[in-house]
């Protein structure tokens, strides 16, 4: 098995080891290279911008198509967010390295594709009243983009070389699956009994992603670390 670190991060560690040999420091873990801005900063700005556009649309300050176009612009912040996440993964050498970089690239690509096709579908359906064939094609695209994100998580599990991190990812996915399917089952019967409103099926994918977060918290409690997803 090879080292999990990138050349840059490992060069930083070698410098640290040299200092350690000369008696400068003695801790349980090596320091990490400079990590730059947090990816959450970019994601936060992106959501704040999208929220502002939604607020403007809700108050009729801008019309629907303008809002859709304006909502796509902040999505480019996904790129610096992914770069920042890569820097952190590289700095921590958390068994992620190239595998994690590939995963983040795939997720960023499918997320961008999802948002762009969703906006395109809404825009064309609203203003052009397209034929059934075109509507079907446009409606398939966002769903396929979400399927691409599931595929990315599957590839992360297959490509992960760190068995402990792979186990955490599988546990997260199992928690997410149990969470989403349980929620769908309960909601379905409540809906049949006319107690709750109808939810479109794609919301269960959203619940699945939320379930990943639940799995990460449980990993943290049981194993002391969140996992890779």
């Amino acid at each position: 098995m090879g080292s999990a670190c990138s050349p840059r991060a490992c060069a930083f560690r070698m410098a640290w080891k040299f200092k350690k040999m000369r008696g400068f420091t003695m801790t349980n873990t090596a320091p990490t290279p400079p990590q730059g801005k947090s990816p959450f900063l970019y994601v936060g700005i992106m959501f704040a911008a999208i929220g502002t556009v939604i607020a403007l649309a809700a108050t009729d300050a801008i019309n629907g198509p303008t809002a859709l176009i304006l909502m796509i612009a902040p999505l480019w912040l996904v790129i610096p967010a992914v770069k920042a996440a890569n820097r952190r993964a590289e700095a921590s050498c958390a068994g992620k390295g190239e595998v994690n970089r590939r995963y983040l690239r795939r997720v960023a690509m499918f997320t961008s594709f999802y948002l762009a096709t969703l906006a395109l579908m809404k825009f064309i359906n609203k203003d052009f009243d397209p034929a059934i064939e075109l509507r079907t094609f446009l409606a398939l695209l966002p769903g396929l983009a979400i399927a691409g994100i599931f595929w990315s998580i599957g590839r992360l599990i297959v490509e992960q070389t760190d068995e402990f991190i792979r186990m955490l990812t599988i546990r997260q996915s199992l928690w997410a699956t149990g969470f989403a399917l349980s929620a769908a089952s309960v909601w379905g019967f409540l809906e049949q009994a006319d107690i709750v409103i109808h939810l479109d099926a794609y919301w269960w994918a959203v619940w699945w992603f939320f379930g990943l977060g639940v799995g990460a918290v449980i990993n943290r409690i049981q194993y002391g670390t969140w996992g890779a997803v």
Binding site: T161, D162, Y223
Partner: peptide, 18 residues
Amino acid sequence: SQQDLADRLGVSRQSVNA
């Protein structure tokens, strides 16, 4: 350190700790 061992094993520091 845990990281030293992790680098030698080609795994994450979290794995060594676990």
